[in-house]
Design a protein around this nucleic acid. Structure first.
Lengths: 210, 210
DNA sequence: GTAAGATTGGATAGTCAAGTCCAATCTGGG
DNA sequence: CCCAGATTGGACTTGACTATCCAATCTTAC
């Protein structure tokens, strides 16, 4: 049998691809601001300027759209973070990464939180497919941080015996927790305090004397 | 005019109070496991063994019930945390607090996350009344941690010049972020790493020589 | 240019949740 | 014991959302 049911990820025409991408981008924005459950397909339809049938032409159901949104947000975040993390070569660079994260949160007064963190909080318990995808994204993110720390070991900034894996998880947890608190408190105080504490720990424990 | 609309927080009869409390406890459990949007009033009705009219007799609408759930979870968490945090008198005590938090998360394999964190993530952006209540709860929680650190300064364990406020926020952010990652990854690795890093920082920077 | 297939518009069925209503029953103070 | 008010049962209205369907229009390979 030919394609039984599932719509392909990449529509065959240019127009189709553009429509599909627009739907995903709009859905990602709405789901970021109002949650997955708080985002109806009619709302996506109106905001994207498409008709109902187009959503269900490109996605089997709302879960499939949500899956695409998770992938979209993962790519967005990782491609934003990667350049910063790829150039970690000093504690100073680590601190400027921290500043980028803090500034981003401050620019929206804490609202929204982390797109991946919010999706995970809403979906992980009830939707294994979402949990698996989000766990993989978090792993990729912490791995990018870990690679940055490893580079700092290689260039002689950090002691080789540090646990780069644990420290990368600590940094990512500091980001996530700081953003959760920023969302409620409309302050980046906790985000800054958490990142500063972990970075100070890295500095004091891991930096090799010049 | 007599009572215009809003049901009182404390029903006048014993039976009424018991019913109201049962509704809140059941709703808190369902909302913890499936989110607020994922918990319908019919589901609460069935799980609590009450009729629709009882829910709307004790709560003006679903938002009012949600408000009661937020208060319930705040009290639950703070009354569980308070005894542990009130006895902080050494870094060792801080580490055993860490163990309690980690063990709790490990017991449920990370699922659920923090009840307050999950509620905040879902509600803060769209519902100012929820955000305000949750921000106050987070503040009370971090204040309890700060008081513990202050006690450690008083008894000579920590240097007086440390920023206990910032460190208490860092510890709370480590908990929240660690739980977010635990929910997706079904591991307490990040929670442990984040708490350990912040505690190690406190230890190394703040402990007075004996 | 043309036909096969992709894309689109919009109406609509089916389902379920929020909230209302009223009559029946229970509770507690006097 | 008795009744005013509290509590309870359960049907019902209203409205929104998910998903489907089919005919009309557009795209593109040939």
């Amino acid at each position: 049998m030919p394609t039984p049911a599932a719509p392909p990820e990449a529509p065959s025409t240019r127009k189709g691809r553009a429509t599909r991408e627009r739907i995903v981008a709009v859905a990602a924005d709405l789901m970021y601001r109002h949650g997955v459950a708080g985002t109806s397909t009619p709302a996506v339809r109106d905001a994207a300027g498409v008709s109902s049938s187009q959503i269900y032409h490109y996605f089997a159901d709302k879960d499939a759209l949500t899956r695409a949104v998770i992938a979209f947000q993962s790519e967005t975040i990782l491609s934003n973070q990667a350049p910063l993390l790829a150039t970690l070569d000093s504690v100073e660079a680590l601190r400027s990464w921290r500043d980028v994260v803090v500034d981003a949160a401050r620019r929206q007064n804490g609202t929204g939180g982390c797109p991946l963190g919010s999706l995970s909080s809403e979906l992980s318990d009830d939707h294994p497919w979402a949990r698996d995808a989000l766990a993989a994204s978090f792993t990729a993110w912490s791995e990018a941080i870990r690679a940055g720390l490893a580079a700092m070991i290689d260039n002689g900034t950090l002691r080789p015996e540090i646990d780069a894996t644990a420290l990368s998880l600590a940094l990512l947890a500091a980001v996530q927790g700081g953003l959760v608190l920023a969302q409620a408190q409309h302050t980046t105080d906790a985000l800054e305090a958490a990142l500063d504490a972990v970075i100070a720990h890295i500095h004091d424990h891991a930096v090799l004397p010049a």
